[in-house]
């Protein structure tokens, strides 16, 4: 195995063009596990830790430009107001040590159906900026996941940034694990309110070959909230609406039975998470979380 250590982004792109099978590595929380378990033996490993822009983020008018290697712990500490859904998801990743090393870029590169960062990216609205020596392009995150552990990157491309829309309303993230910390998702769920466009977005992880948006559920709920005039009222979401939303989220799943859980449980649990997280975001919205700047964790304290 050859080890490449580009000192700059341009060098990294050149190296990737020269060695398209090179596996990029930053925190190593996923790649190293696969190598240690002998599941993967890449001919080249490319260390991106010397590329400074990958470790930086910039908060713009409407979105956050997140460097691919920014670790989860930075997101939790610094971007809770702008990216509350992603910050909550970051909390659920691995252990503190893993959160200090793992990053959204790595999560996207691995493209696991169970990736914790994927649902909040889908509900917030995000684009993946991929670059190669041929040029740069932005891939909407909805189009990024193409199959189990497969993504839309060309073989000479690297992920540079993720552009994530700043929250304009409350966001939530919830995931099922069979222990209370340090666990891979049996299934995960995120919901985000977008009051400015009067839309609700919902996304699911680990209940289909790729993370996905439950668009039918989104459309139903967005329409129901509009029809009932709820965005401008102080009323709760009618239980029948919440229930239908949950059913639609659940029905959108195409889960499998595996060692972590049954398909039936995943479908069931997505429904429960959908109902609960909708209640939390709506409660937060009614309590003034309309600007999105407020901490939208519903008073939740995390470690």
């Amino acid at each position: 195995m050859e080890f490449l250590r580009p000192a700059s982004w341009q060098e990294a792109l050149a190296a990737k063009a020269e060695h398209p099978s090179a596996v990029p590595i930053a925190g190593g929380t996923d790649v190293m596990v696969e190598i240690n378990f002998d599941q993967r033996r890449p001919g080249w490993l490319m260390d991106l830790n010397r590329v400074p822009e990958l470790h930086e983020w910039e908060t713009g008018e409407d979105s956050v430009r997140l460097g691919a290697s920014v670790p989860y712990s930075r997101i939790m500490e610094n971007l809770r107001a702008e990216l509350p859904g992603l910050a909550l998801a970051a909390h659920t990743v691995g252990s503190p040590q893993i959160r200090n090393r793992g990053s959204v870029g790595g999560n996207l590169g691995a493209a696991s159906p169970a990736g914790d960062s994927h649902p909040p990216l889908l509900t917030a609205g995000a684009e993946v900026e991929a670059e190669s020596v041929r040029g740069s392009r932005r891939i909407p995150v909805e189009e990024f996941f193409t199959g189990v552990k497969r993504n839309a990157l060309a073989e000479d491309e690297l992920i540079k940034y993720v552009h994530i829309k700043k929250a304009t309303g409350p966001q939530q993230f919830s995931k099922i694990g069979t222990r209370n910390a340090m666990v891979i998702a049996v299934c995960g769920f995120s919901v985000a309110l977008h009051p400015e466009s009067r839309r609700v977005r919902a996304a699911v992880a680990s209940a289909a070959p790729t993370p996905f948006r439950a668009t039918e559920a989104e459309d139903f709920l967005s329409a129901a909230l509009d029809e009932e005039g709820l965005w401008d009222s102080d009323r709760i979401v009618p239980p029948s609406v919440a229930r239908r939303f949950a059913e639609l989220c659940s029905a959108a799943c195409k889960p499998i039975d595996d060692v972590r859980g049954s398909a039936a449980y995943r479908r069931h649990a997505v429904g429960v998470m959908a109902r609960r997280t909708l209640t939390w975001v709506w409660e937060s919205y009614r309590n003034g979380g309309r600007g999105g700047a407020r901490n939208d964790e519903g008073g939740t304290r995390c470690a």
Partner: peptide
């Protein structure tokens, strides 16, 4: 005046944030 706070670490699901007391 913020109402009752919830420590998810003390709840089923823990940091995975699956309940704030429901169920």
């Amino acid at each position: 005046g913020a109402g009752t706070g919830v420590d998810v670490r003390a709840l089923p699901g823990g940091l995975s944030n699956t309940t704030h007391g429901e169920g």
